[in-house]
Amino acid sequence: MNNFSCFDNLEACIFDLDGTLLDSMDIWQEVDRKYLASYGIEFDETFSEEIKRLTFNESAKYFIEKFKIPRTEEEIMEDWNQLVEVEYRDNVQLKPGVKEFLSYLASRDIKMCIATACNKTHALMALERLEILPYFTFVRTCKEVGKNKEHPDIFLRCSDEMDAKVENTMIFEDLLMALEIAKKEGFRTCGIHDVLSSHESEDIAKICDLFIYDFHELKVI
C-alpha cells in the first residue's frame, strides 16, 4: 500500500529519465533490434534487460564482448547516437501527469534534479522541447559520475549537490535494482511502472514507499 506520508518534510527529488519521466524505453529496444539486425544477429528481449542498468560506455562494451561487433566502443556509441537523436529531439513524449507533478513540487520549493544513464545531449534535447528543463537544478549522468546504477554514487552525488539530506530525498525510478540500491542508502523511493520493467512491478511495489502507474496518482498528496 502506498505511504503518502513519505512526502512529509521532503527536501528534494531525484528523477530517472527513460522509463520514468519519458516514455522512451521502446526507442532503445528498437535501436538494439535494428543495430543487431545490421550484423545478422537476432534480437532477444533479455538483451534490453541486461543492458538497461549499464552506462552508455558499458553497453557498447557489452555489445562488443557478447556479439563480437567489429566496432570500437566510441564507434558503436556514435552509431547509436545517430539512430536515437531524432527521437529525443522531435518525438519522445512525457509520461502522463509528469508536468503537473513537477509543477506541484516546484510550488512547494522542493529541489529537483535528474540522474540518468542517458546521453546528456539527448536528455537536454527532450527536456527542453517538452518544456520541463527549468524545473531541474541540474542533469547528472552515470558517465559523469563514473558508475552505473548498480552503485549508489549518482544518487549520493545528486543529493549532495542539492544540499539535501538523504533521508529527506526521494528517488523516482522504474528499475528495481536502482530502487534497491537507493533504499539501502536510506533514500525515500517511488517506483514507476514501465512496460519494459512490468515483470518487476510486484517486487518494486514491495520495496518502495510508493508505486505508481502514472503521475496523476500523486494528485492526492
Rank of each mutant, 00 (worst) to 15 (best):
E78Y: 08
V98T: 04
K111H: 05
N91H: 12
E78W: 09
E87Y: 13
E58L: 07
E78I: 08
R71D: 05
D90C: 10
Y88M: 03
E50M: 12
V84L: 08
P96H: 10
K68L: 02
E50L: 14
V84K: 08
E49P: 00
V86D: 15
F63M: 14
Y62L: 15
V86L: 11
P96V: 05
L54E: 02
I51E: 04
K95Q: 08
V98H: 01
Y104W: 09
W80Y: 14
C113M: 02
K99S: 09
V84A: 09
E87Q: 10
I64R: 12
I69R: 05
E65F: 06
V86Q: 15
V84R: 06
L105E: 01
K99E: 04
Y62Q: 12
I69N: 04
E78M: 11
A60Q: 01
E85L: 10
E78L: 10
N91D: 04
D109L: 10
F67S: 07
L102C: 07
N81W: 09
R108K: 15
D109P: 00
F63H: 14
S107T: 07
K61D: 12
K68Q: 10
E87L: 04
E49N: 13
P70G: 13
E73R: 08
E75C: 05
E49M: 13
L94S: 08
F47K: 12
E100H: 13
P70D: 11
F47N: 11
V86P: 09
K66V: 13
E50D: 14
L105P: 00
N91G: 01
E65R: 15
C113H: 02
T46E: 07
T72D: 03
D79P: 06
G97Q: 10
E75T: 09
E73D: 01
F56R: 07
I64E: 04
P96A: 11
I110H: 03
S107Q: 11
F47H: 13
D109Y: 14
W80L: 03
F56N: 03
A60P: 03
M77I: 07
S107A: 11
C113D: 06
V98S: 01
D79L: 07
E73K: 11
L94G: 04
